[in-house]
């Protein structure tokens, strides 16, 4: 379980996140929505220790993000908005192995893991390709594969579809849904596109660094969306 208690976060002197309290259960599918600049990315980065609370605490299965970043990042994967900027190596399968190399996995085990991940996402045909010739959707799948290979318990997606075309958008959202339903991976989906949240079970609405709604998706109404500046 991911627990956030009394979290405040400041960039320089500006308070960006204000008194955030949250619990995200194993196997959850939670969407975090909010207008541009409301603090979604800042909050998301706290979940895998890319940012540390100015006040309060974030724990992943009782592990404090301030204490043990490596364990936290093994449990929580992070897929960024821009598929271009999160791939390190030029060849797809090598990039997928990047995280495993960092964890010191043996070569044979690594090959098996990379192959099964590639198979799971149906992207065997990309394995030996150069990253630079892939489409944005294929790059995003590669980035996701690199995270999946590390067998995370949760994956945070920060606006993963903003830069994709409609077909790829749908594809990625379907893949994410499958990961949640079949692989029981907890999904935290950050987005400002209401279309993206159709599979989510819970929704958190964030407005000016504060949580103004945190409940089942069915309870979400237009008044709240309007308040968050998201009225469709």
């Amino acid at each position: 379980m991911i627990q956030i208690k009394n979290l405040d976060f400041k960039y320089e002197d500006e308070l960006i996140l204000k008194n955030i309290n949250l619990e995200l259960k194993d196997g959850c599918y939670t969407a975090i929505i909010g207008a541009n600049g409301s603090g979604k990315t800042t909050l998301a980065k706290h979940l895998n220790a890319l940012l540390m609370p100015t006040k309060g605490s974030v724990t992943i299965d009782e592990i404090d993000t301030k204490k043990d970043q490596i364990s936290v990042r093994k449990k929580v994967g992070f897929v960024f908005q821009n598929p271009e900027d999160q791939l390190v190596y030029s060849i797809v399968e090598e990039d997928i192995a990047f995280g495993l190399e960092n964890l010191g996995m043996r070569t044979e085990e690594m090959k098996t893991k990379v192959n099964s991940t590639i198979k799971g996402l149906d992207i065997e045909y990309l394995a030996k390709k150069n990253v630079n010739i892939l489409s944005a959707g294929q790059k995003q799948l590669t980035a996701l594969a690199g995270i999946l290979a590390m067998s995370p318990k949760y994956i945070v997606f920060d606006e993963p579809t903003t830069l994709l075309d409609n077909k790829n958008k749908k594809n990625i959202m379907d893949v994410v849904n499958t990961l949640n339903k079949e692989n029981k991976i907890g999904i935290i989906l950050v987005t400002n596109l209401l279309n993206d949240i159709k599979y989510a079970k819970n929704v958190i609405v964030i407005c000016n660094g504060r949580i103004i709604f945190n409940d089942k998706k069915s309870k979400l109404n237009n008044k709240i969306l309007k308040k968050a500046g998201l009225d469709a």
């Binding site: 490596i70 960024f80 900027d85 390190v88 995280g99 980035a143 690199g146 590390m150």
Partner: peptide, 8 residues
């Protein structure tokens, strides 16, 4: 960030 997230 992406490299840190994958435990570089």
């Amino acid at each position: 960030d992406a490299m840190l997230a994958r435990n570089y």
